[in-house]
Each structure stands twice: as C-alpha cells, then as structure tokens.
Design a binder for these strands. Structure first.
Lengths: 163, 163
DNA sequence: CGTCAAAGGTTGAGGGTGTCAATTGTTTAT
DNA sequence: ATAAACAATTGACACCCTCAACCTTTGACG
C-alpha cells in the first residue's frame, strides 16, 4: 500500500553505469519496478511462514532445515553454508531436532571430524507433509489467470537457468 | 539447485480434492509449479536480507519496522499487526530503536492508552537509504530480458490489484 | 617420523526475537 | 458507578544468531 507510491522518491541514487545507447534508463527502472512489486507481494506472504511451520510444531528455521535435508546425508558445515549462518548455530539447531528424533548425527567414516545429518523415519515423513504444504500456492497466485501462470512459470525457469 | 529435481517426488501426496472434471489438474499444477519456482528464487535471495540490513547496522526485523514506518505515525498495536507478532514483542523492538534515536514514542491526545511511533530525523534519513538499497533488484532480475521484466511487472500489478 | 596449520564441530557469553500470562492505566458500555 | 475491553508493559522462558575459544582430526612439509 505504501511501499509503492514512494518508489520514485527512492531512486535518487541511480547507478552510474548503465550507459550504452539510449534504452537503458527504462531498463533500470523496469527491473527495479518489477522487483519492488515482487518484493511487496512476497513479503506479504512470507509473513505467515512462521504460522505455516507452526502447523507442524516447527520453528521457521527448523522447517528450513528439514527442507534442505532432502535425500542424502549432509555435513553440518554444509548445512551451515546452505543456511548462510555460523557453524556454531547449527549445533543447537540440530540438537533440538535430534532431541525430537527427526534427525540423526552419524560421524563419517572417511573423515572422523565431520558429522553427517540424516532424516529419521519420522523426520522424512514430516518433511514430506511439510513440503506438500509449502507447495500450496498462496491466494494471490491461486486466483491468477492461467496465461499469467504460464508466463510466470516460463520467466522463472529462464531466470533460474541463467542464475 | 536441488529443490527442483525433487519437485516431482514430492507431489506423491497429491491433494485429494481437485476432482471435478478434467481441466483442474493442469490448473493446480500450474499454480503450484509457478509458486514453487518463485519460492525457490525468492528464498535464495531472502537469504542475504540479514546481510543487507546489517549494512545499516540493523537486524532484519528492525529494517522491517523502519520500512513500515513510512510517513504518518503508527500506533504500536498497529505495528504489531503489520508484523503479525505479539504486542509485547513490539515493546522491546521499539525500545532498541528508540535507544538509537531512530524512532520516538509519543502518546496520543485522543486516547491516552495508545502510543504513536514516529521516525526521528535520523530515522527518516536511514530509512531513505535503506529503501533505496532494498529497491536494488537482485542479480537474477538484473539479467532478465526486457520483455520478461515488462511481463513480470504487469502480472504483479494485476495480482496486487485483485489481492 | 614429528610438527604445525587448517578444518569440522562444540561450548560459553551475550544479545535480538518471539510467546504467554499477569499487570497497569484508560476508555466505553451498561 | 461498575464492569468489560483495550493498549502497552513486565517477567519468565525458549529459540535464533554471532563471536571467540577450544578440542580433535587431518594433511602437508621438513
């Protein structure tokens, strides 16, 4: 509602590059504009992610961890980089998940320093339900015309590829 | 790079509804698909929001509060609903911002129970820089073809309208 | 072989974020 | 006038997060 009107006043500090011919100004504006809109929508809907996680008695971060623990085992340090947080943080995180028997630490044979994380039976089951729930599109997408959905999907696929 | 390959394995637990005629299956699939892609991209990018906020010596939540404190004054309870968190949480939040002289509490004249929040001079200045920084589109959008940007913008505007 | 630097994980201190239950002060309805 | 409802705060408690210090293991190099 308000992050929109002031979009213009903010772009005072325009990037100094972007000078090739004569199309660019619009270019920068377009990306910024689309991004602001996207951010607005997404932010509105990320707000209830905690509630979503709570449906499974998980904190948001715990849900995120389960999400990353797809199939194979993962070293704790790898998880730390995935979460882009300090390794010491992961210790407590995993402690709590292990206490709930959703995850197991098992030390690697090749390198006895590292501990690999694997989902338990219960953990995998919970993760399945969680992922299914997370895949449910939010209202603003459910009520989108079909052609917009197709277009959106295409754009996103392209973006992911060049990422 | 891995939330994609397993997209298929997850939809094993397909929603039991979705049985009416013969068109819906694709419908559900489209929204879910687009949503999953969007979520993937957004999540990747949201990961460094803490770092972005840290550029301004703010925590992510503090940045969010500043974002909401646009122009007018805001009651603390209103802010609580915007943040969708408990009112008691806002107290501490505002305490810390006020300690840094970014925000002021002033009690309302009409209703002496409520305290209105306003940005200080410094707060408004910081918010300006923050908003400009947040408007900078992430790499995956900066490298998008122009027509995709236009399409994306249009889709998002439509979505926001019907929201 | 012995030493040493680097890496994986843990611990402890300290602070921000979040909830719930109880409290205080104010408003509003009855 | 009294009671119910509301805004904000406080205290207890848990989680998330970082940093610095530490221990063990590994790998390299003399």
């Amino acid at each position: 509602m308000n992050g929109l009107g002031e979009g213009h006043s903010e772009q005072a500090g325009r990037p100094p590059e972007a000078r090739t011919q004569g199309v660019e100004e619009a270019e920068v504006g377009l990306a910024q504009q689309a991004w602001t809109l996207l951010f607005e929508l997404l932010h509105t809907h990320m707000r209830n992610f905690p509630a979503l996680a709570a449906e499974f008695d998980l904190s948001p971060v715990q849900a995120h961890v389960l999400r990353q623990l797809g199939e194979g085992a993962l070293a704790m340090s790898t998880l730390a980089t995935y979460l882009s947080c300090d390794a010491s943080n992961v210790t407590g995180l995993v402690d709590r998940l292990e206490a709930r028997k959703l995850v197991e630490r098992r030390s690697s044979e090749q390198d006895r320093r590292v501990k690999m994380l694997v989902l338990t039976e219960a953990g995998a089951e919970l993760r399945g339900r969680l992922m299914a729930r997370m895949a449910r599109p939010p209202p603003f997408m459910a009520s989108m015309p079909e052609e917009d959905l197709v277009a959106l999907g295409d754009i996103m696929r392209r973006a992911l590829k060049t990422q």
